[in-house]
């Protein structure tokens, strides 16, 4: 564990708390892509299978995994049942097959071992890299976002961004590199670049998140 990794994880944690706060206080999931949230549930369930196989890493690791699985399922519940009328499927139209299919194929080709657990782990890494796309697509389509939603996305993007110095640190401290995680992580972080540009130049200057027409 190094400071970048810790800050990254805390940022991930913060992003989920911001999202929950947004849904609870506005009593609405307007502007949030159900598809992206559903993909995160798939990502966490397929990646954290090791929880049930007895591979113990640390209390921190287990607690975080349980939190991510629990909170992502809870968010789906809020969106699908509790605040269902506030979700508009007509603007959440990204085809998730285009993300799940290629992720599965990549996982079958590029993995560390031909076992179910390792293939699902690789699948979860590839899927996470692109899971934000329905959300970004929705943002692009509507051209604007509530400020709180942009803070959620910024925290989520910061989490992935912070994993990069973490990997550089690990390379120098333990000589290890996880190529699957690194390549997928770079792609994932890259997807946020446009968003971050608008976030820094508009939202953090006190303006509304609006895309030029």
């Amino acid at each position: 564990m190094n400071v970048f990794r810790l800050l990254g994880d805390l940022s991930h944690l913060a992003s989920i708390l911001i999202l929950l706060h947004k849904i609870q206080t506005t009593r609405s999931c307007r502007g949030i892509s159900f598809k992206t949230q559903a993909l995160y549930v798939v990502v966490f369930l397929t990646r954290y299978l090791d929880l049930f196989l007895g591979d113990w890493v640390s209390l921190y690791n287990t607690a975080m995994k349980l939190f991510f699985i629990g909170s992502s399922c809870y968010i789906l519940y809020l969106m699908k049942l509790r605040f269902r009328p506030t979700h508009d499927p007509a603007i959440d139209t990204f085809r998730v097959e285009y993300l799940v299919g290629p992720s599965l194929i990549l996982a079958l080709i590029f993995n560390y071992k031909y076992t179910l657990v390792e293939i699902l782990w690789a699948f979860s890494i590839y899927l996470e890299a692109v899971a934000i796309m329905p959300q970004l697509f929705m943002l692009q389509r509507t051209g604007e976002a509530e400020t709180i939603t942009t803070h959620y996305l910024a925290a989520l993007g910061a989490y992935r961004g912070l994993y990069i110095p973490n990997w550089i640190y690990r390379y120098f401290s333990d000589g290890t590199v996880d190529p699957i995680a690194v390549i997928a992580g770079l792609v994932q972080t890259g997807l946020y670049l446009d968003f971050f540009y608008v976030y820094f130049t508009r939202v953090l200057q006190g303006q509304k998140f609006e895309l030029p027409a």
């Binding site: 890493v57 690791n61 333990d174 000589g175 590199v177």
Partner: peptide, 10 residues
């Protein structure tokens, strides 16, 4: 470099 053993990242 080596690939880390197991997956300790989240």
């Amino acid at each position: 470099f080596e690939v880390p053993e197991g997956h300790d990242e989240l």
